[in-house]
Design a protein around this nucleic acid. Structure first.
Lengths: 256, 256
DNA sequence: AATGCATTTTTGTGATCACAAATCGGGAAA
DNA sequence: TTTCCCGATTTGTGATCACAAAAATGCATT
């Protein structure tokens, strides 16, 4: 075992991880505005670590900074989703090509194992596990390529599309998305057929994001059916109870 | 004219721009370690804006943060350069494809004008202008696609490869790099021939970064012939004179 | 001369504060 | 009711400080 490299324990990193997690698991709603002091209080830290974590997420495109310097979860348009789709096709396509070229039997077996877990989760209708395993499946695949910079970029792209991937459930998932594509992909890996592997992953990503893009309203905006009502409600909305000291929890959009 | 959106005047952004500029113009040497206090003093600001700017650059891959939490300009290996090359082929290839599909006569004319400026700079051996115009040429091209996220990603990639692009001069540039490729690219744009346009840009990027990668020593490391001596010199090296209040200036690697 | 250890210095991190700009609130005028 | 304006509040920004970890330095020992 390697000498156990120290791992980053800075508050900044903990906050970063927490925010990232909240983002991908749908605890933040697109369009939601975030203030430093609110997040700092919610996480029980000072402004400092929140500032740094937030800045990093802005740099990665996970949040956007408005000209007035306030930070919010990006609101997507149809065009933006399609742009991200094409980028993901290019980048993740490249990753599977490289993976296919070098994949070992053990690596392929590991990916297959995760593919089976997806089927299992889907069988029982467990969408949360489903999404988690989908992510695990893709990243196990990309990791095979051993291209650290490429992997980091893919993580950034997933972070940007993340808040919108909830829109795939349950309609898109239940309709016509069986395990066949993944089976074909695994076969391509075994044959070291880079072109075929790319074809499969492109179909996967392309279908999903095209579906999301097609949810755009006539103005081109995509507003996920969200826990936040369409119109801002001035309802009494009880005061934030007591300080939610627990780290990974956030209340949703206290105002749009 | 649009209502002149406010433009970010924060110190953090100024520092960011300054560091970015120093990085792409070769004022920092790969491997150079940077301390917050040194940069803050050099730029005449407090630690705060430097911290935020550095963090952003780390998030973008322009700097790397070592486990000991110190920041330095990344040292590239041959494998890393080749990885970046392939990513750039994929991403910038995608951008020119999209650009070729929608380019107008005026946009093409603008790119052609810059291409001529490259030839002019090269004729008189002005490498600095050459590099600046090369960048301008590429980004004018990519901007045609009108894909903001894609453009941001390309900027990030250029930032990462930037410190190593100096290695192309003068040997690579003078040998066999005429304006023919750019002429063919412009022709492809006019014909809206996306595939041909991609082919040209891929040759351009591929040749350059393959050349850089081939400079790797036997250990796979790439250490540019730099203004900093190979071995750290303990020479008297006069004290940093007076505080270099001017913003965009940095002294080079005061220690490796 | 080379090595190991203790001390000093440097450096990143996080908290707190002051300030200016942005936002929100309510009341007056249309 | 709607619009506009002014005051109060919120919010991001940058500076400064305290502290712990890391690095550098000096010295004694082998």
């Amino acid at each position: 075992m390697p000498p156990a490299l120290p791992a980053d324990t800075s508050l900044r990193t903990q906050v970063y991880d927490s925010l990232r997690d909240s983002l991908t698991s749908g605890k933040f709603v697109p369009g939601q505005k975030l203030t430093l002091r609110f997040l700092a209080k919610a996480l029980g830290v000072s402004l400092m670590p929140v500032r740094e974590a937030l800045r990093r997420l802005v740099a990665e495109g996970a949040f956007e900074m408005r000209p007035n310097r306030s930070v919010r979860v990006p609101l997507m348009t149809r065009a933006k989703i399609l742009e991200l789709r094409d980028i993901r096709l290019a980048i993740e396509g490249l990753a599977v090509e490289k993976a296919a070229a070098v994949a070992t039997k053990e690596q392929i077996a590991r990916v297959r194992r995760i593919a089976l877990e997806i089927v299992a989760a889907r069988d029982v209708g467990d969408n949360v596990t489903d999404r988690k395993k989908i992510r695990e499946y893709h990243f196990a695949l990309y990791a095979i390529a051993e291209q650290p910079t490429l992997l980091r970029m893919i993580e950034g792209l997933w972070l940007q599309t993340g808040p919108y991937m909830n829109l795939l459930y349950p309609k898109f998932i239940s309709s016509s998305r069986g395990p066949e594509g993944r089976t074909r992909l695994l076969r391509a890996l075994q044959a070291h057929d880079a072109a075929a592997a790319r074809r499969e992953i492109e179909r996967d990503i392309g279908d999903a994001l095209t579906f999301v893009a097609d949810l755009a309203d006539s103005a081109g905006n995509i507003a996920p059916a969200s826990p936040v009502a369409a119109k801002r409600r001035r309802a009494p909305s009880k005061a934030p109870a007591t300080k939610p000291r627990g780290v990974p929890l956030f209340q949703r959009a206290e105002r749009l």
